[in-house]
Design a protein around this nucleic acid. Structure first.
Length: 606
DNA sequence: CTAGGGTTAG
């Protein structure tokens, strides 16, 4: 290496030698950089000896006058995140072309310095450099990662005015930007107008649908893409696997897995991790674990995904067992790993283990707990009835408190019927201008129980004043490869009559067995009779009963998604599984419940 | 010489 650098300096800048030099200088620089990766990969250290020496030699021999050499060196600095050095070099260059600018813009984007990335782009325009299809994708991506559709649109406008003929890369970047920033229509219009869409463009669009909650459409688009003769690659498969995870449809998951095996896709870290997540979210931790065991390379994300999977399936012990194994394979935990571990503790009721981990994360792994970690702890302590400790934690924390944190505390108060504390908490929530109508309903019920009718009225006024609407709950269920969605009081299903008939008879049986309905979360401004009726129209109950009707004995009833789960439905599920001997696998927003013969594997822990 | 799509948590 040193030899090469020395020989560079010895060479005189003969015109005929320049071409040779530009490539060998580049090669030398690249070799130097890779020889010194430890330093090079740290964005905040300057590149030390080898690369600097190349730079010095190149400067001495006057080679920086050659644009191609300078650009190449610039690129090597940028690639290795040595932006200070790159910037210095950029400033020293006598001549800069579109490539030089592009490298700088890309360099800033690479280290995540979007402010400088965009600033450099603006300067580029002001300097009259002609826009090209290389710089634009970088800038658009920066806008996307900053979730800045306004800037993105601005850039889009500039591009249109420049009259540049956009290629696949720019269009894909634009679509990705609009899709991620929830301007989905614009994304779709661009997509539809594209003359020949390649794999990347399709992948972006498929991902856009999955991300915006329309996983069904995303899978349909995948089939359409294959109809057009495009062959998916690993990245495309990851998005499809991700879509299946979002959908929670086990049947689809199996099909996709089958396709992956048949086509011989390599189970790389990302695809493997996505598959772990997919199986876990489709209700089978065991399949998830199978994938996990088969992967030959695992990163923090893979481990965290597996830990989280055990966590929301209520198998806290198995989740915790993975932690030492992970450390054993020399993978360091991050904040999400700890979040998953704490969730696992919370879902399984492992209070002391949770406390231990919580203390450990900062002391031993320098991972600073944020609100989410605190929320987990509050949930964990709160459910266990240790309200004082939970409150203590809240009062002594230094990070900013948010709605979710108070919500967890309020939930704990509700479980343990601590009305005084609940009122205090609820007021903190109201001060935060909470948009969650559930909190208001809860507070109103607390007042109603205490007979404080004036306060009940006040809360109701507040709900109208702040224009809060209770988001209607809905539930998805998978039956024979199809996903059905039910809303509250849904009567649109063709088996509706039967569903309601069976529901009525189940309710009678439950009441005979001594069931007392839990109307706690229904607003107290309607009379008792109406409240009961509305309770028996909850989407979860409709979905489960539909599952009973539409599937055969032996197949599990799969609730793939459930928004705004209520405790009474939990009781209902247990009852149904007890008298029908059917397994109900239910997924609410962040946990699974396997009801078997009336027992719930997540414990009766909520 | 420089460019677009992918995994955990919320």
């Amino acid at each position: 290496m040193l030899k090469l650098a020395k020989s560079l300096a010895l060479l005189v800048c003969g015109r005929e030698r320049l071409r040779f030099l530009s490539t060998s200088a580049a090669a030398a620089a690249a070799a130097a950089a890779s020889a010194n990766q430890e330093t090079a990969l740290n964005p905040h250290t300057h590149l030390q000896y080898p690369l600097d020496s190349v730079h010095a030699q190149v400067t001495v021999s006057g080679l920086l006058h050659n644009l191609a050499v300078a650009n190449k060196l610039l690129y090597v600095y940028a690639q290795h995140r040595a932006l200070d050095d790159a910037y210095a070099l950029f400033g020293m260059m006598e001549e800069r072309d579109a490539v030089s600018w592009s490298i700088m813009v890309g360099g800033f984007a690479k280290v995540g310095d979007y402010v400088y990335c965009l600033r450099t782009f603006r300067k580029l325009i002001r300097c009259g450099v002609k826009l090209d299809n290389y710089t634009l994708p970088i800038v658009l991506r920066a806008c996307r990662d900053r979730m800045d559709p306004v800037m993105g649109r601005l850039v889009h406008g500039v591009v249109l005015k420049s009259g540049l003929c956009l290629d696949q890369c720019v269009l894909a970047a634009l679509i990705s930007l609009y899709a991620k920033c929830r301007v989905k229509n614009d994304a779709r219009i661009l997509f539809d107008e594209m003359p020949n869409r390649d794999l990347v463009t399709w992948t972006v669009m498929i991902n856009a649908y999955a991300e915006s909650g329309n996983a069904k459409e995303s899978l349909a688009l995948f089939d359409l893409m294959r109809d057009e003769g495009l062959v998916p690659d690993n990245v495309a498969m990851v998005t499809i696997v991700h879509a299946c995870a979002k959908l929670g449809a086990m049947h689809k998951a199996r099909l996709v897995h089958d396709y992956i095996s048949r086509m011989g896709f390599k189970l790389d870290v990302i695809l493997g991790t996505a598959m772990i997540d997919m199986y876990a979210k489709c209700g089978s931790v065991d399949y998830a674990r199978e994938i996990f065991d088969r992967m030959w390379e695992r990163n923090v994300i893979s481990w965290s995904a597996m830990i989280a999977a055990y966590g929301y399936h209520g198998q806290g012990k198995k989740a915790l067992d993975l932690f030492p194994m992970m450390l054993g394979s020399r993978i360091l935990p991050n904040r999400i790993t700890f979040l998953s571990l704490l969730y696992a503790c919370s879902h399984a009721g492992l209070v002391d283990m949770g406390l231990e981990l919580f203390n450990m994360m900062w002391d031993e792994y320098s991972v600073k707990p944020d609100v989410k970690h605190y929320t987990c702890m509050v949930d964990l302590l709160g459910r266990a009835g240790r309200l004082d400790e939970a409150m203590n934690l809240i009062e002594n924390m230094t990070v900013k408190k948010d709605e979710g944190l108070w919500g967890a505390m309020l939930g704990a108060c509700r479980i343990h019927k601590n009305i005084d504390l609940a009122e205090k908490i609820a007021n903190s929530l109201l001060e935060l201008q909470s948009q969650n109508a559930g909190h208001y309903v809860l507070l109103s019920n607390i007042y109603a129980k205490a007979g404080r009718w004036e306060d009940v009225a006040k809360i109701r006024d507040l709900i109208t004043e702040r224009e809060l609407k209770k988001v209607p709950g809905w539930t998805c269920i998978e039956v024979e490869n199809k996903i059905y969605q039910f809303g509250v009081g849904d009567k649109s299903h063709h088996l509706s009559k039967e569903i309601y008939r069976l529901l009525r008879s189940l309710r009678r049986k439950m009441e005979l067995a001594g069931y007392v309905p839990d109307t706690n979360l229904v607003l107290h401004d309607v009379d008792e009779e109406v409240k009961l009726e509305s309770l028996f129209m909850h989407s979860e109950k409709l979905a489960i009963v539909f599952g009973l009707i539409a599937t055969t004995e032996g197949t599990p009833i799969r609730i793939t998604k459930n928004l705004r789960v209520c405790g009474d439905c939990h009781t209902f599920s247990k009852f149904v599984s007890a008298i029908t001997h059917r397994v109900i696998i239910a997924r609410d927003t962040n946990r699974f419940h396997h009801f078997k013969e009336g027992v719930c594997s997540c414990g009766d822990y909520w």
